[in-house]
């Protein structure tokens, strides 16, 4: 074959699905919504994501309790090579993120970063929890990729 002809033929199973540049596209989307429709619209969008795509996670949380969230965070942070710790403080599940894989990737690739990016975590987590009768908090250090997220069952 001529060196002017190149071919790649791949099956889905040949590669692992992990395209971290998507973090950049999501970050861009947050900035775009903020700039063009306002922060309230950005929140509405993130609530929509929480209520639609993450509906099965809310249902699992409602049915199985905090173990559902523990498994979810364990899976995604491990897959993305995040530096994190999961533990319980009494009845609260605590996720301590020492290096957020999304922010680390944005910084490493010099992609657009907006300080509003962490609202994706704040609003989507809150929506997932509210749908299941749970509450949560997220304290993050702007731009550092570090945060502490807590999850607990709502007191009736």
């Amino acid at each position: 074959m001529s060196d002017k002809i190149k071919v790649i033929d791949c099956k889905q199973s040949d590669n692992e699905y992990l395209h971290k540049d998507f973090h950049g596209a999501l970050c861009y989307a947050i900035k775009y919504l903020d700039d063009n429709f306002g922060e309230k619209a950005t929140e509405e969008y993130l609530v929509q994501v929480g209520k639609t795509y993450f509906k099965p996670l809310s249902e699992k949380l409602k049915k199985d309790g905090l173990k559902a969230l523990e498994d979810h965070w364990q899976y995604i942070f491990q897959k993305e090579n995040g530096k994190f710790r999961l533990h319980y403080e009494g009845d609260k599940l605590v996720l301590e993120v020492d290096q957020c894989p999304a922010i680390a990737h944005l910084k490493e690739k010099n992609m657009l970063y907006t300080e509003r990016y962490c609202q994706t975590t704040v609003v989507v987590n809150k929506t997932i929890c509210q749908q299941a009768g749970y509450q949560c908090s997220c304290e993050y250090q702007l731009g550092k990729g570090k945060c502490v997220q807590k999850f607990w069952r709502e007191q009736k």
Binding site: H23, L26, L33, V49, T52, Y53, I76, G82, V97, T121
Partner: peptide, 16 residues
């Protein structure tokens, strides 16, 4: 964090 593996459904929801 919305994982990059969860981005596509979030992207589709953005278009909607």
């Amino acid at each position: 964090m919305i994982s990059c593996t969860e981005f596509i459904p979030a992207y589709s929801e953005l278009f909607k």
